[in-house]
């Protein structure tokens, strides 16, 4: 028996919009810890890890660990039928091949049940080792999205370099090149507007902009994005989900041949 009630149902809608283009099918895992997902894109270049902790739900009942194979596009279609203010409850049962999404309006005067078919998905959880990162950049998520969008119109790849001077985003394409530097900038009044760079040593890595631009669909979930970089490791682009958990996108670098 599974029953997860989320007052701020819009969070779940935003989560789906953030990942559905990167990953088409995935297993959602439900345990005492929370509602989670780990999945790779079809090219095995990027990986998304989502956690919505049980404490963040208004009501969380999960009698035993359950894995639900879901087509994310179909789930997104159903969640789009929920109003922006609706409370969303996810209901499931062992041994059934469906999951139900219940949408309640704030005033409780409209209740909708959407039943969706589950699917069998073969997937293995990858072990993500703990890593010390050479540099961690925290910046406004909207600023990062803007940079990825702008550079994406010039080139296909971005070189992200962190030095004492700041974080540099560079691309080159047929029409020319572009270089954007963001310096550390702390805003006491609005910490979410700050750019903070923690650097143990300088690092420079190259990534496909197409994936970076896909990750920025999570911008609506958090005002701040954290980018963790180490040579020879996938970059981690993390959006915290207020008081509930996170979406982390891992992207393998491109390397010089």
């Amino acid at each position: 028996m599974l029953e997860l009630r989320l007052i701020q149902g819009s969070l779940l809608k935003k989560v789906l919009e953030a990942i559905k283009d990167l990953v088409t099918e995935a297993n959602f895992d439900c345990s005492a810890t929370g509602f989670s997902l780990q999945a790779m894109d079809s090219s095995h270049v990027a990986l998304v890890a989502l956690l919505l902790r049980s404490e963040g739900f208004d009501h969380y009942r999960c009698d035993r660990n359950l894995s639900m194979g879901i087509n994310l596009n179909n789930m997104s279609k159903m969640l789009r039928c929920a109003g922006p203010e609706d409370i969303i409850t996810i209901k499931g049962d062992d041994g059934t091949d469906t999951v139900t999404f219940m949408f309640e309006s704030q005033k409780q005067d409209k209740i909708s049940d959407f039943e969706m078919k589950l699917m069998d998905i073969d997937s293995e959880h990858l072990g993500i080792p703990d890593a010390e990162y050479q540099a961690i950049v925290r910046m406004p998520s909207a600023e990062f999205a803007r940079i990825c969008k702008d550079l994406g119109s010039i080139g296909d790849t971005v070189v992200i370099s962190v030095t004492k001077e700041g974080v540099k985003f560079f691309t080159r394409g047929d029409v020319g090149s572009a270089n954007i530097v963001c310096r550390q900038n702390t805003s006491v009044d609005k910490p979410e507007d700050s750019t903070v760079i923690e650097m143990n040593e300088p690092v420079s890595l190259t990534f496909a902009l197409r994936y970076m631009n896909s990750f920025t669909k999570a911008t609506t979930l958090s005002e701040v994005v954290t980018i963790s970089l180490s040579s020879e490791l996938p970059v981690v682009v993390e959006y915290k989900i207020a008081e509930m958990g996170y979406i982390r996108f891992y992207l393998a670098p491109k390397i010089e041949d």
Partner: peptide, 14 residues
């Protein structure tokens, strides 16, 4: 030329 690495070359299957 740059080559795209796979995520599987960093993270292990169980």
């Amino acid at each position: 030329m740059t080559r795209q690495k796979s995520i599987l070359s960093f993270f292990q299957k169980p």
